[in-house]
Every structure is written in C-alpha cells, then in structure tokens.
Amino acid sequence: MNYIFYILIVFSVIFGVINGKTQEVVNAILDGADVSVKIALSLIGIMAFWLGIMRIAEKAGLVQWLAKLIKPVTKWIFNDVPPENEAIGNVALSVSANALGLTNAATPIGLKVMKELQEINSNDKETASDAMCMFLAMNTAGFQIIPATVIAVLVAVGSKNPTEIIMPTLIVTSIAFVSAIIIAKIFQKFWKNKLISPSEKGVNND
C-alpha cells in the first residue's frame, strides 16, 4: 500500500505538469478530502440502522442458522474460520445484500464481518488475515444479480430493452466472483510459503 500511495500521488503530479493540469491536481486534494469526510458522515445513519437490525438477527439466532446452512461451502472457502462463527453467517448476508444490489445494507454488514474477522485474526492486528483477504476478494469482485444503477441509466437514455444486459452481466459477474475466490485461495498457499508470516503460529494441515 505504501508504494501504491506513493505512485498515485507522484504520478498525478508528474502527469499534471505534463498535461498542464497542475491547478486541477491541487484542487483535487481539497475536493478529495472533502468528499471522503462526506462519504463517512453519510454512512453514520445507515450504518447505525443496519448494525441495529443485524444485532436483532444475531440475538434471534438467524445469523448462526445461516452460517450452519452454508457450512459445506464456507468450510473450504474460509478454512481458517471456525465454521459456526457468526462472521460466516454475516458473510452470507453481505454477499446476498450485494447480489441484490442493496448497497446500503451491504456495506454495514460487510464492515461487521471485518470486525468479527479481526477478533479471530491470528496475525498482528494491523495485518490482514487470509479470511479477510478472501472476504474482500468476494466483495471487490462485486457479485450482482440485478445491476439496478446501470439499468436506471439505460432507461434514462431511452433504452427499449434495458434488461437485456442482465444475462451477460450475470455471466461476467459469476466468472469474476469464482475467479476471485480461486485466486485468493492460490495466494493463500503461495503467500504463506513465501513469507514467514505470523500465521505460522496456527499451523494449518490442509
């Protein structure tokens, strides 16, 4: 992340000078900082709402039930998380919320998953665990059944058949989703052998 941060900013300045856009680059610092805080603040209310709802779901045993239901799949995907941990149930909820295009619900639930995974993180608390990388691989691949925003744009420009993109989108999103999981699995093995990571403490014999 250190290099990426450095490259982003240094390249921006260099390209800004080349393209004669230095003023825009400077303005972007202020705009970007401003937008970041606005995004965070706008999250507070909806975060609180979904964390409240999720707490009820947990106390009612719904999350645990869901975790048990998907255990056959998650046992393989999240081999470093106890299969009946609440995080697993919440992973299922988060992926479903994303799939249905419920972004407002997906982010709070996803952040809750991260918090639960952090509690069982065997690395130091500043280093991502394999389970976190796997969960984020699933998330960044963005599995979606209904691309609602895209359809809305197509409707706005007068598309007669905006739903025709659902089928190809579904195929592509599935391919990306499955590849993300497989790639994360491969990295999980490779990264462990390459670096002497603190996760060696809990030796896995899979």
Partner: peptide, 8 residues
C-alpha cells in the same frame, strides 16, 4: 482524485 485530475 489527484490521479483523475492529472489527466493520467
């Protein structure tokens, strides 16, 4: 944002 604004 800086990257976008730079035209990169």
């Amino acid at each position: 944002s800086m990257f976008r604004a730079s035209g990169a």
